[in-house]
Simulated scan of single mutants.
Amino acid sequence: MKKVLLLLADGFEAVEASVFTDVLGWNKWEGDGSTEVVTVGLRNKLTCTWNFTIIPEKTINEIQLDEFDALAIPGGFEEAGFYKDAYSQEFSNVIQHFYTKQKPIASICVASLALGKSGILTGKRATTYNHPTSKRKEQLKNFGAVVQNELIVQEGNIITSSNPGTAFDVAFLLLEKLTSKENTEHVKELMGFSTTKTK
């Protein structure tokens, strides 16, 4: 079984977290059955961007990082306190562990800034929230990343993306890294994401 650590900061966007639980959950029951997601936070109760409260299955101090095969991090809003957790030393320690072990790390939208803060994007291609009114790309550049004007960037074992609209694609890319392209296409088809057009 491939265990995925879904690392949640206070103020995360629920929709960006749900793609990982859904895609990898569909794989567990309808795909090759090889993936399991564990939700983890810094505390035993978290509030999403728009006051949706959740209880993660574990807190960081209750897990052994070596038991996990991949890391997934959804983005969130500064106004909801996202960066307090995302920029914390505890978050950085988790990110650095997966990077050192060369295990897949998938981030959505501004979650790439947490990767940048941890130091793992120095000199590496990456992207983040890319709306023209946003300064997030400049912030990512200040962390040493080589910022790309692309929706999704894969750099070795690291996936970064540019906005919430990329969320499902990121989750499917992570599934492909953990299983296979064929299995991922099977799960996509079951979920209604098939590129095959019916008449």
Rank of each mutant, 00 (worst) to 15 (best):
residue 143 F to S: 09
residue 183 N to E: 12
residue 21 T to R: 07
residue 11 G to Y: 07
residue 69 D to G: 08
residue 8 L to P: 09
residue 93 N to Y: 07
residue 17 A to D: 10
residue 15 V to P: 01
residue 109 C to G: 00
residue 119 G to I: 09
residue 159 I to A: 03
residue 92 S to W: 08
residue 20 F to M: 04
residue 67 E to G: 01
residue 181 K to N: 13
residue 194 S to C: 05
residue 120 I to D: 05
residue 169 D to H: 14
residue 50 W to A: 13
residue 91 F to G: 05
residue 158 I to S: 01
residue 162 S to D: 15
residue 171 A to P: 01
residue 44 N to T: 12
residue 91 F to Y: 06
residue 151 L to I: 12
residue 76 G to W: 04
residue 58 K to Y: 09
residue 197 K to A: 13
residue 81 G to M: 04
residue 78 E to Y: 10
residue 125 R to I: 05
residue 54 I to W: 05
residue 192 G to I: 01
residue 57 E to S: 13
residue 18 S to A: 14
residue 55 I to C: 12
residue 110 V to S: 04
residue 55 I to W: 08
residue 149 N to I: 05
residue 148 Q to Y: 09
residue 196 T to E: 13
residue 57 E to K: 15
residue 1 M to S: 15
residue 162 S to T: 08
residue 194 S to I: 01
residue 38 V to M: 09
residue 84 K to Y: 14
residue 170 V to Q: 05
residue 115 L to F: 07
residue 19 V to E: 10
residue 32 D to W: 03
residue 53 T to E: 15
residue 131 H to T: 08
residue 199 K to P: 13
residue 145 A to R: 06
residue 46 L to D: 06
residue 153 V to I: 09
residue 148 Q to H: 10
residue 127 T to R: 07
residue 173 L to F: 03
residue 7 L to W: 05
residue 199 K to S: 14
residue 61 N to G: 07
residue 20 F to C: 06
residue 185 E to C: 00
residue 34 S to K: 15
residue 105 I to E: 09
